[in-house]
Write a protein that binds this DNA or RNA. Structure first.
Length: 282
DNA sequence: GCCCAGGTATAAA
DNA sequence: TTTATACATGGG
């Protein structure tokens, strides 16, 4: 990876295919916010940074070489070639070309699995602005204070709390689900780390033993929290897109990058709502 | 007021 | 096994 440390921070030379807005605002993560100048501010683990684009470079402010190697290189998935991935997806099913071409530079971030699980539990029957507000309240109330904000609280920390303790989050019926998830992860009854390599069907099953975790949250946790790129979250828009825009295309036919294909399909279907035939949806 | 938000648990057919 | 409904909250 081509990078250097300057007085601006870490400067990473990007060949192509990395769009900050498409990556941070696509609904895969909830702790990045766009600033007025188009840069993004966010917190990952115990690092709060601002990140922005300058021509062919991505600049991560206030970060050391160690931060890059220990955190950002992996988090931003900088060693994956998304141009190759796009080509492979199209080669599997050429109908997907329009979807793949509809959005540039999305990357699947390497988020912490517990943070992803917890965030997507909060996401159910909810909208992105409010998901972000609830996640930020969770961090402010129960995370550790760091320079520039708060960390995401650990499962161990949340497991010691009660549903009433989560009242300040104003997360509604989801509070009891967050507590159940924290208890199961903290006790080891649900082993997230094992899910990096375990057979994906076993992972789905194990995740869904958590109250409030259904197929959608399980797939999102696997895709965004465990970087299982073959995971395939299906929501109402995906159902529409699969059945109408792509004439019944099946996730099973999308191979090892199905989850990334899903991002393109989702974006394309949202971009072209008039093409979606709702009569074909139950 | 009413509708919706990248769902899920629960009860009933 | 499949299909309706409630669910907490807040913005439009």
């Amino acid at each position: 990876m081509n990078y250097e440390i300057t007085n601006r921070g870490i400067e990473i030379k990007i060949g192509s295919c990395f769009d900050l807005k498409n990556t941070f605002d696509c609904g895969q993560c909830f702790r990045w916010n766009e600033d007025e100048d188009g840069s993004f501010s966010g917190i990952v683990k115990d690092k709060s940074v601002r990140i922005y684009r300058d021509n062919d470079k991505i600049i991560i402010e206030n970060s050391s070489e160690d931060d890059f190697k220990n955190l950002w290189e992996n988090y931003l998935d900088l060693n994956a070639c998304y141009d190759d991935i796009r080509n492979e997806i199209i080669s599997l099913d050429s109908r997907l070309k329009c979807a793949v071409d509809s959005i540039d530079g999305i990357r699947i971030l390497n988020q912490d699995p517990w943070e992803a699980l917890c965030s997507f539990i909060i996401s159910q029957n909810n909208n992105i602005p409010r998901i972000k507000i609830i996640v930020s309240r969770l961090c402010e109330h129960f995370g550790d204070e760091i320079q520039g904000g708060y960390t995401f609280p650990s499962a161990d920390k949340i497991a010691k709390l009660s549903v009433d303790d989560l009242a300040p989050l104003r997360s509604g019926f989801r509070a009891k689900y967050i507590i159940d998830a924290a208890k199961k992860v903290s006790s080891g009854e649900v082993n997230l780390e094992k899910m990096r390599t375990a057979p994906i069907d076993e992972c789905r099953k194990e995740l869904m033993t958590i109250k409030g975790v259904g197929p959608k949250v399980a797939e999102c946790t696997l895709l965004y929290g465990l970087h299982r790129l073959e995971a395939f979250p299906i929501d109402v828009w995906m159902k529409k897109a699969l059945s109408t825009l792509f004439n019944g295309i099946s996730p099973e036919n999308l191979g090892r990058y199905a989850g990334i294909a899903q991002q393109y399909i989702f974006h394309y279907s949202r971009l072209n709502p008039e093409l979606v035939d709702t009569s074909k949806i139950q």
